[in-house]
Computed example of a mutant assay.
Amino acid sequence: MSEEAKLTSPNTTPSPFKNLTGAAIAATLATGLYAFTNMVANKLATAPLQTTNTLANRLSTLVRTILLALGTGITMIFAVIALGLVLLTIKQVFTAIFSKPDLSE
Rank of each mutant, 00 (worst) to 15 (best):
M1L: 10
S2N: 08
E3H: 11
T8R: 13
T8K: 12
P10K: 00
N11K: 04
T13M: 12
S15T: 15
S15D: 10
F17Y: 12
T21C: 13
A23E: 08
A24F: 04
A24M: 08
A26W: 08
L29Q: 11
T31R: 10
T31C: 07
L33D: 02
Y34V: 03
Y34H: 15
A35C: 09
A35N: 12
F36N: 05
F36T: 06
F36K: 05
F36G: 03
T37N: 03
T37C: 01
N38W: 02
M39G: 11
K43M: 10
L44Q: 00
A45G: 05
A47V: 00
T51M: 04
T54S: 09
A56D: 07
R58G: 09
L59H: 04
L59E: 13
L62D: 15
V63T: 08
V63L: 14
V63Y: 14
I66F: 01
L67F: 13
L67R: 01
L70G: 15
G71E: 06
G71V: 00
G73D: 01
G73E: 01
M76D: 10
M76F: 07
I77D: 05
I77C: 04
F78N: 12
A82V: 05
A82H: 07
A82R: 05
G84E: 07
G84M: 09
L85A: 02
L85D: 02
V86W: 02
L87D: 03
T89H: 04
I90A: 14
Q92N: 11
V93C: 07
F94T: 13
F94G: 09
T95P: 01
T95G: 11
I97D: 08
S99T: 09
P101F: 09
E105S: 14
